[in-house]
Design a protein around this nucleic acid. Structure first.
Length: 490
RNA sequence: CGGGGUGUAGCGCAGCCCGGUUAGCGCAUCUGGUUUGGGACCAGAGGGUCGCAGGUUCGAAUCCUGCCACCCCGACCA
């Protein structure tokens, strides 16, 4: 078979980039660092959106929308927050262009804004400015709002889906009457994300606390889910922040509690982005292209007709149409590809590249025998089934594929998670094969930074379920009570 | 902002060192035909300011100078 992708083992980055482009998910745009998401890629994002949105609603949240622009003064109200984002902000300074007299346009100096506007890198500030007006009493709480939006972070180096200057995401912003309730919400949402990653994206994740160094700018605590990619690097797939009263204090949002006492509101925020697309790609893809989990595949089943003479097509189409209708009635998305400008072999390879979970081929031989050829993307195996069993068999097969690719990812993570107690081993393993390293750490930022300098590995999280055990810090030898998760990351 | 690299057809590249007819190849596109159970084949066609500007020369994709753009490796990061 012809080679369509860069060799994955040789150059993983190049392979990833190739795959995103060739599978028709996205491409680089004319604007530096920005991405065009193409219809096929966006269709996957829509599935992700729909899945998450349902979970958000089930946990009591509603959607709303806040402005793209944030006045500079709002932005700087929370000290840690502005510190964390200042270096990557796009700023609007003018509101008008004018003719430069040479056939072009220039920014009109007369149209300078009184106060510059920041294009949101995240919306805490603009949202809490509104919450100030919405919250007066404990009766106004909780507020459980989510926003689907785009944000801009002016990154130095970008990669399709993993880090782009502008990206699509959702950000939840909640307000609560008590610390406990806010913490509970923070935990609830990290669990929602973990559940989605595992059930829908078929990717196992590790839930944990971020270290002081890695937590969100303005948060008291950041919880994250971390997934292991096939090149041995970690990907932060979602975060949920307990913001304490930091933003309420910055925006002076107080409420009267049941006893008539005035207190600041407790906050959380949480988000996932189009980066999840990158997680799906790097978590499951193989040398033939994408492997999409059935629950997120825009096309779950593709039917490819095989015919020698044009006269054979109507009979095949009739059967294909019937199967399509049967499957669709069970909620399965089916595409019948009867274009005659590509050969079946071309289509097979193309749908594999695009990660379609199940392919049905129907040819004259099948018409004669009353059979279908079923190929599954995850194992690349094929089998012949009686055509009348398709509407029973295919739904079960899709479930099986969903489970199988999850199990594969779990096995991969098991094989690439190392419990390390010696610094020499740490140095060796982080180079080859990479992966997750569970090691003791003395809890200090200094140590974390030294390890980062020497190995490029960071503390991805302090897993919630990391058992208490006596140990010595991998780097300093000081006492430690639990292992933390180290990895190189995206 | 540091270090390295590349700009030649829609995409991927060769040619450049050593200047010389009409700038070439693969993929893609279009036409016609044969094909179609794993990325088909044959024949033909279209498509180029050789990144931009200047210089050297009888002659520049090729040599020189300046500029621009993009990519990779760092610093930054969901």
């Amino acid at each position: 078979m012809a080679k369509f992708l860069t060799n994955r083992e040789e150059n993983y980055s190049q392979w990833y980039n190739d795959l995103v482009i060739k599978a028709d998910l996205a491409e680089n745009s004319a604007v530096r660092g920005c991405m065009v998401i193409k219809p096929y890629g966006y269709a996957i994002w829509e599935k992700i959106q729909a899945g998450l949105d349902k979970l958000f609603k089930e946990t009591g949240h509603v959607n709303a929308y806040f402005p793209l622009f944030i006045p500079k003064s709002f932005f700087s109200k929370e000290a840690a927050h502005v510190e964390g984002f200042a270096k990557e902000c796009a700023v609007v300074t003018h509101y008008r262009l004018k003719n430069d007299g040479k056939g072009g346009v220039i920014v009109d100096p007369a149209a300078k804004l009184e106060e510059e506007l920041i294009i949101r890198p995240t919306s805490e500030t603009i949202i809490w400015n509104s919450y100030k007006n919405w919250i007066h009493s404990y009766r106004d709480l909780p507020i459980l709002i989510n926003q689907w939006a785009n944000v801009v972070r002016w990154e130095m180096r970008t990669r399709l889906f993993l880090r782009t200057a502008e990206f699509l995401w959702q950000e939840g912003h909640t307000a609560h009457a008590s610390r406990e309730e806010a913490i509970e919400e923070t935990q609830r949402m990290i669990n929602v994300y973990a559940g989605f990653a595992e059930n829908s994206m078929a990717l196992p994740v590790i839930k944990g606390y971020k270290s002081e160094n890695e937590k969100f700018a303005g948060a008291i605590d950041t919880y994250a889910i971390e997934a292991l990619m096939q090149d041995g690097k970690a990907l932060q797939a979602g975060t949920s922040h307990f913001l304490g009263q930091n933003f309420a204090k910055a925006f002076d949002v107080q409420f009267t509690d049941k006893t008539g006492k005035l207190d600041y509101v407790w906050a959380t925020s949480w988000g996932v982005s189009t980066r999840l697309m990158g997680a799906i790609i790097m978590g499951h893809a193989d040398n033939n292209g994408l492997v999409l989990p059935p629950k997120l595949a825009p096309i779950q089943v593709v039917i490819v007709p095989i015919f020698k003479k044009a006269e054979q097509l109507p009979v095949i189409s009739e059967l294909a149409g019937k199967i399509k209708k049967d499957l669709e009635s069970k909620g399965i998305t089916v595409k019948y590809d009867d274009r005659d400008n590509n050969t079946p072999g071309w289509k097979f390879a193309d749908y594999e590249l695009k990660g379609v979970p199940v392919r049905i081929a129907i040819g004259p031989r099948d018409i004669e025998n009353g059979t279908l050829e079923i190929a599954r993307r995850d194992t690349l195996s094929k089998q012949i089934i009686p055509s009348h069993t398709a509407s029973e068999y295919i739904p079960k097969l899709l479930d099986e594929i969903q489970i199988n690719i999850y199990n594969k990812a779990v096995d991969f993570r098991k094989e690439n998670t190392f419990y390390v107690d010696k610094w020499d081993d740490f140095l060796r393993i982080i180079e080859e094969p990479g992966g997750f390293i569970m090691a003791h750490w003395d809890g200090t930022t200094e140590t974390e930074e030294k390890i980062k300098e020497e190995t490029k590995a960071t503390i991805r999280c302090i897993p919630f379920d990391s058992p208490e055990e006596e140990g010595k810090c991998i780097y300093t030898g000081k006492t430690s009570r639990r292992r933390v998760l180290f990895a190189r990351s995206y």
